[in-house]
Design a protein around this nucleic acid. Structure first.
Length: 197
DNA sequence: CGGCTTTGACCTGCGC
DNA sequence: GCGCAGGTCAAAGCCG
């Protein structure tokens, strides 16, 4: 791979500094929800800022019905997942929901995802898409759906911790460091380096 | 031809 | 116990 090129075909818009800010224009990280379980606010990221980006805990904030449903449902799941068919209990680890105002349906976070399901959900005319990390042995999943009340927003829920680096990890790190953009830093750090539950 | 998406069916949990 | 809703599976089709 040519290091001068984006490691992800879908990240060509990050190929230069101007494009980085185009990237930030395309995404409005209006709500980021971090649900890490284990009680209280351990690991929760709260950002007091005047910027458009806010980090919302599981206890407050958020507005859309989809988010409300999401939080209600997932607050009971936290760090563990349902048992599988054969009774096995899986530790899914971290769960993060990101609400993003974007025209595109799927945020490319640098990982390679494989779609395995699509469902219509209650109170949302838009379909919810289910993705698994396509990296071998990595059980991280993500759900992507448009906010039922405001289709301009996309809710992306990540579940689990990657056991490998993002194909774009180095590239991102350089980008984040070089430009010292707190929004990029917070988002990318959150997505790529989920702390263990 | 291999990898990915689509989509209907099936399974499971939860509320009533 | 039943029905509903969400999550996953897997076969078929598509695409590069």
């Amino acid at each position: 791979m040519n290091p001068s090129q984006s490691p992800s075909p879908n990240f060509t818009f990050l190929s230069d500094e101007n494009s980085i800010y185009s990237f930030m224009d395309n995404y409005d990280f209006s709500n980021l929800m971090f649900s890490v379980g284990e009680g209280g606010n351990n690991g929760l990221i709260q950002e007091e800022t005047s910027s458009p980006t806010t980090f919302v805990t599981g206890e407050s904030g958020g507005s859309g019905s989809a988010l409300t449903t999401l939080r209600k449902k997932e607050s009971t799941l936290d760090c563990k997942n349902r048992g599988s068919k054969d009774g096995e209990t899986k530790e899914m680890g971290h769960r993060v929901a990101i609400r993003t105002r974007t025209k595109i349906d799927v945020m490319d976070d640098g990982y390679k995802w494989r779609k395995y399901g699509k469902k219509s959900v209650k109170n949302n005319t838009n379909k919810r898409n289910y993705y698994k990390c396509s990296s071998e042995g990595c059980m991280v999943k993500k759900r992507v759906e448009r906010d039922g009340e405001n289709a301009a927003y996309v809710i992306t829920t990540y579940e689990g911790v990657h056991n490998h680096e993002s194909p774009s990890h180095v590239y991102y790190s350089d980008m984040v460091y070089d430009h010292d953009n707190w929004k990029q830093h917070s988002l990318l750090q959150s997505i790529q380096t989920f702390p263990p539950c």
